[in-house]
């Protein structure tokens, strides 16, 4: 699994529960490292071991942890780069939803080794969508729910998200878009400030 993903899990756990608890989780998961390098590759199963250990050590349901992590990925100021890259998907939340199918391709453009979940968006009726998410990591659908909720917030849209169920390595998410201009979204200036 790509170090970037493991690093994201590490940052989420460390920032949320503290460095001490993160070390407990790393030990419990028997992954053999306490610090992931975002630009290196790690053996398959590492992410799974981390999530399982985190759930056990923190006494929290796996799904809730994953959903919380999805929100963290977009809303943590230290990960502003990721939020910006996601915002390139579209100028409003609905456009962003339609761009999700491009997500693995966009990920590969940045990092050829990066495997992101396969996403397929199906429109059901006006303002209602189903997002099918296929991934090696069970519970990725919950990460997507947390991430989409934070992105809706970012765009100032009001959306209801719910987990419809899983079959094999596919998970389905229901998205109901109630209002696109619900609130003032966060600013997104196309110009990128370096340094």
């Amino acid at each position: 699994m790509h170090g970037l993903i493991n690093r994201a899990v590490q940052c989420y756990l460390r920032d949320t529960f503290g460095a001490g608890r993160w070390r407990d989780i790393a030990r419990e998961s028997r992954i053999g490292v306490e610090n992931f390098e975002p630009m290196l590759l790690y053996p398959p199963g590492t992410t799974e071991a981390l999530i399982t250990a985190a759930s056990r050590v923190m006494g929290r349901p796996r799904d809730a942890l994953l959903e919380d992590m999805g929100t963290y990925l977009v809303s943590n100021p230290q990960l502003e780069a990721l939020r910006r890259l996601l915002r390139f998907g579209g100028s409003d939340f609905e456009e962003f939803l339609h761009s999700l199918e491009d997500l693995p391709g966009r990920g590969r453009l940045a990092l050829p080794d990066l495997a992101l979940p396969d996403l397929v968006l199906t429109a059901r009726e006006a303002g209602r969508y189903r997002l099918r998410c296929r991934s090696d990591l069970p519970g990725t659908g919950y990460v997507m729910i947390g991430l989409l909720r934070a992105m809706a917030d970012d765009y100032g849209a009001l959306a209801l998200l719910d987990y419809l169920g899983a079959a094999g390595d596919c998970e389905d998410i229901g998205i109901e878009l109630l209002e696109t201009g619900f609130a003032e979204g966060r600013a997104f200036d196309l110009a990128f400030r370096t340094g």
């Binding site: 890259l85 453009l109 940045a110 196309l190």
Partner: peptide, 9 residues
């Protein structure tokens, strides 16, 4: 623009 930012990151 997306690529440029991704690359910078």
């Amino acid at each position: 623009l997306y690529l440029m930012e991704a690359k910078a990151a």
